[in-house]
Simulated assay, not measured.
Amino acid sequence: MKRREAREKTIQTLFQLDTTEMSVDEAITYITEGPSDSFYEKLVRGTVENKAEIDNVLVEKLENWSLERLPKIERTVLRLATYELLFNPDVPHRVVLNEAVELCKTFGDEKSGRFVNGVLSKFEEK
């Protein structure tokens, strides 16, 4: 599984977890329907395990928005991207931003991409 596909499946899994009472393992099995990829699992489990810290950081970056008011796709993409920015230093900052915008184009709309890019651009490059 390529990293782009892993990120797409991660968004689907995190979205599933946000809208149902599934466990992480159930959601992974539901989305992958077979053996899963280690990068994909790292993204899903890392985002879920660090969700409280991720949400705290996001709240600081959002202007005139609460996390609860965000559309689910934007919130989900922001959580994944924030996880990668904070906990996955081997992925360059620019790649995380580009991938987040592409995920918004796939699952949301152009406005989603612009909004997510604006929020993520507030993170300092490391």
Rank of each mutant, 00 (worst) to 15 (best):
E84L: 08
H93Y: 15
R75D: 06
A81I: 12
R79M: 13
Y83M: 09
Y83A: 03
T106Q: 13
E99K: 11
P89F: 10
E84R: 06
R94L: 04
K72M: 15
K105R: 14
V101M: 08
T82P: 01
F87P: 01
F87W: 06
C104I: 09
V91N: 03
L97C: 03
L78R: 09
H93N: 10
P92S: 10
E84N: 01
E99L: 14
V91A: 01
G108N: 08
E102S: 09
L97A: 01
V95C: 06
E102N: 07
L103R: 03
K105V: 11
R94C: 05
K72E: 15
N88S: 13
L97V: 11
V77G: 00
R79G: 03
V91R: 02
A100V: 08
L103Y: 05
E99P: 06
L103V: 08
K105H: 15
T82V: 02
N98I: 07
V96R: 02
Y83I: 13
L86G: 03
Y83W: 11
V101A: 04
Y83T: 04
H93T: 10
L97I: 11
L97P: 01
T106L: 11
E74G: 06
L97E: 04
H93W: 15
L85K: 07
F87H: 05
R79Q: 15
C104F: 12
A100N: 08
C104Q: 05
N88A: 07
L80G: 00
E102L: 09
L78T: 15
N88P: 00
I73F: 12
E84S: 05
E99N: 10
L80T: 02
A100T: 14
A100P: 05
T82N: 00
E74F: 00
E102Q: 12
A81V: 03
E102T: 10
V91I: 15
V101Y: 07
H93F: 13
K72A: 11
P89S: 10
V96I: 15
R94V: 15
N88F: 12
L78A: 10
E74I: 01
T82Y: 02
